[in-house]
Design a protein around this nucleic acid. Structure first.
Lengths: 251, 251
DNA sequence: CCAACCTAACTGTGATCACAGATCACGACA
DNA sequence: TGTCGTGATCTGTGATCACAGTTAGGTTGG
């Protein structure tokens, strides 16, 4: 069922640091990542969701995911609990857990919220972006361009680059809670959005996304917040319109 | 430690419907509530958090909460997992789980996000509100007025009425995901906001909240979206300014 | 009198087991 | 042929146990 789920052995990769007493060396090492298994499973599922590799309506089984990842059922339960709390997954009453199937109304609401929230983030990013931020955005824009312009288009790479581009922009706003909000929106809309981009790479050829990205980048360079918002809104609206027309949404 | 946590016995309140075959009777009964224990614990903790009855920095113990609620540790783990994913609780690396202590910068970011998101909700509510919606808002406004004007002010009732008033407004916008977003913001800001209102009920006497509510209500009645947003923004900003001055926030 | 050690209690995490309820396929009855 | 009952199988939920890591309190040694 879940061929997309990669093994994730419980490798205890915390290498015990030897008895080192040199102060300079101790200062150099940072706090080691101390990530719990449940968090890693959560991250794994999140990645699959925003990438559209788990299709809407697809059913997951705690035991199967646990087996596929090489862990017990416990961490998977925790991950599913969190994602279900975010609305990224839904647990049917007594049945199974599955990727939510959005209705057209729900998708429209999500799009409106994205326009408000991500539009605000774009404005703030245009005001606060550092040269380093802009460099990162430029890099991801180039990656997206290359993936979208290839023949045939590399849809997987385009999806990833598109995500990186957007979040590089939002991170320039330097508002952590804002980014969390946007991630939650992407988690909900990701399955349809990216499933579509993955299945219909021809949409990339239209170039509307690349055009919007170019205008966005230009606006950020000029620190023109309203223009950045406008460009981003066009990007979101164009993708949403395409989904609303051709996507598979519930009535 | 958690005297605030109310017992929550595992009462199986699902009354088995008798073998009724009358079609009209079958149509009348709705789906019975089927709530899992973990969800009830989550709701219990959410209520305590937004009401400010769990103070920032307060530490929780899974076992103690479980014992206080009369359930096993398992549902509490699930509830804490969800709330931690929302940032409403935080789990220290290897230590304990506690209510987050916001820094001044984090609180300011939350306030800005509230202005954006709840401001949008107020606009939309002003456009979409039905007479029934307005009636509900009026009722909660009256309750808030009464609690705040009493001598001494009934801070607990004021906190509850204030919450009900705001969410009655937001629900008039008829955008479920928007309400989830706002609830998450309140979950983060609630502990300081309402802890403050609870400890310093004198702030209520200033009447700035009541004045803002009155303007808000008037704007909704007139279907004046910009005015509704302005009134709500004043309400949020006034409370936030008071916290930033006197509240206990980390540097 | 203060600091360092050490032990006992407690923490969240993960695994395993038990169970009620839902699903699905097969077969009996009408 | 169509429909309902029925059983095996699988689902998520909850409880219990085991464990490594941390914390706090008391004690010892300086």
């Amino acid at each position: 069922m879940n061929a997309a789920v990669q093994p994730l052995r419980t490798a205890s990769e915390r290498s015990a640091p030897p008895g080192e007493t040199d102060a300079s060396a101790l200062d150099a090492i940072g706090a080691l990542p101390r990530e719990t298994l449940g968090e890693r499973v959560t991250g794994e599922l999140r990645t699959l969701l925003v990438a559209g590799r788990l299709a809407p309506g697809e059913k997951l089984s705690l035991r199967r995911v646990a087996e596929a990842l090489g862990v017990s059922m416990m961490p998977v339960r925790e991950a599913v609990s969190r994602l279900a709390a975010d609305g990224a997954l839904e647990v049917l009453p007594g049945r199974a857990v599955r990727v939510p199937v959005l209705s057209l109304a729900q998708f429209r609401e999500l799009t409106r919220l994205r326009l408000v929230v991500e539009g605000f983030a774009a404005e703030e990013a245009a005001r606060q972006a550092t040269p380093a931020d802009i460099d990162r955005i430029v890099a991801f824009d180039a990656a997206f361009r290359q993936a979208a312009s290839a023949d045939p288009p590399d849809s997987a790479a385009a999806v990833a680059a598109n995500r990186d581009l957007h979040f590089a922009l939002y991170e320039a706003a330097a508002m952590p809670s804002l980014i969390e909000m946007i991630e939650r929106l992407w988690l909900k809309a990701g399955p349809i959005l990216n499933l579509d981009m993955r299945h219909e790479p021809r949409r990339l050829e239209g170039g509307s996304a690349m055009q919007a990205h170019a205008r966005l980048l230009e606006a950020v360079r000029r620190r023109d917040a309203p223009a950045a918002r406008a460009a981003l809104e066009d990007d979101i609206a164009a993708a949403a319109a395409h989904i609303a027309e051709t996507g598979q949404l519930r009535a």
